[in-house]
Design a protein around this nucleic acid. Structure first.
Lengths: 244, 244
DNA sequence: AATATACAGATTGTCTACAATCTTGAATAC
DNA sequence: GTATTCAAGATTGTAGACAATCTGTATATT
């Protein structure tokens, strides 16, 4: 037998955590940004994050590059160095973002609508279930935002996962958290206008059951479009964040 | 005065090239993949690339992560380690890719079509010029592929740059080279059916001049859709690459 | 007092070393 | 001859150190 490494070091991490530090860094930093713990527009210092996550700068740095490529952080270009900044939240950016995700989901929904009838019915059932959960929350006196996000996200995710190919799914997965960021940081709008979104979801479900690609696409694009308008209204009231 | 570093080191790269190795690595490796120097489906060894590019593994590694997130390389997941392989070329992937880029450009073209008339005319002029260059090449006996790629790419890029916001532009910039990869590696189709593409371009130009968003979007989607069909035909003949 | 210069601290970009893990191939047992 | 086990090499993931650059402040000069 190979000389047993012996030493009862069952500590989950040896000296060099030779596992998924990068993944962990990526997801944790993204969480920090999406949940607003890292303020929009604030500077990012690699070493600070590394300390916070208890790892070296190397994986943090790679994670930041991922996040940059996906739009969570942007870089202030000086001559050679680049300082990372948490992407600010602006009405204009929200508009473009929502437009893109609306089209991406529309494309996926189109393919969902083209599925055999049995599968469509199965999906519609799940969607209806999720939408009912939203409607339930609506009835409670003090809806907690956290649940709403998850359910709505699951609703859209279900459509993507049933209709989109691997490339489109990857694209969606990289864009969706950014929309979620806007929701979370301007949560009030979602809660207040939830009933509108529920109604729009119902239309989408009906369109899927009918197997009408155009109608599904229109429904999804409209859902995002109107969500964007609601969001823009809130941004007008509370102001943009991180851009000054 | 701080002790002068002195030593007339005018060598462009000091010991640690403190410039843009990462950018360089990203673009060079992408070129290698897009131009087929790195065969689809083949394994990538970080150290080899680092040697080839005369830099250390660190920037190469980061560059590979970028390329992974954008779909040029994919990772074979074992339990913990991940080996990178050059993304294979398959008919299915091409279909999805072309569908996505068609929609992305369609969305951009839609906004281009909504521009003021003067700007639209200016853009249409540039597009017409590019399309004429394509038509010229068509007349020559032995068209060289390289020029065609560049001109066609400029054609589409002009539409994006005039109509898309920063997010959509970034998205397009990350997807477009992957479509280019398919072209380059199945070049024969493009050259043979170039006249069809030229005609489709003319229709797009006309739609922009008319300021009709729907028509522009349809034109662009159709251009990519038909390009995809032409490509699929070639893939059928020559076979997929890198997937076995 | 205002401006320019030089220095010190902070931060980033890269390199090298090392540990963990995977792969491959050969030796052994059946 | 085939299957199993073990070990050596290959490769990846992370850490830590160093060099280059940037930024802000204090000092000197006019």
């Amino acid at each position: 037998m190979r000389s047993n490494p012996g030493n009862g070091k069952q500590s989950s991490r040896s000296k060099t955590d030779h596992g998924n530090s990068l993944r962990k860094a990526f997801h944790e930093i993204r969480e920090l940004i999406v949940h607003g713990r890292l303020s929009p527009g604030s500077w990012i210092v690699e070493a600070d994050l590394a300390r916070h996550l208890a790892m070296s700068r190397t994986p943090v740095r790679s994670a930041l590059h991922w996040l940059q490529r996906e739009g969570y952080v942007i870089e202030h270009k000086n001559v050679r160095k680049s300082r990372m900044v948490v992407a600010p939240l602006t009405k204009e950016d929200a508009g473009e973002l929502y437009s893109i995700i609306g089209h991406v989901e529309g494309l996926a929904g189109r393919q969902t609508a083209a599925l055999p009838k049995a599968e469509r019915a199965e999906i519609a059932g799940r969607l209806k279930n999720l939408n009912n959960q939203l409607a339930e929350i609506l009835k409670t006196k003090s809806p907690r935002a956290s649940g709403i996000f998850d359910i709505d996200r699951d609703f859209h995710r279900a459509i993507i996962e049933s209709g989109a190919g691997p490339r489109l799914q990857a694209l969606h997965k990289s864009i969706e958290p950014q929309a979620e960021r806007y929701w979370r940081l301007y949560a009030s709008s979602i809660i207040h206008d939830l009933h509108l979104s529920v109604a729009e979801h119902s239309e989408i479900i009906a369109a899927i059951l009918a197997g009408d690609p155009d109608r599904v696409e229109r429904g999804l694009q409209s859902n995002w479009q109107k969500g964007c308008e609601r969001l823009a209204h809130v941004i007008d009231i509370f102001g943009e964040r991180g851009s000054w």
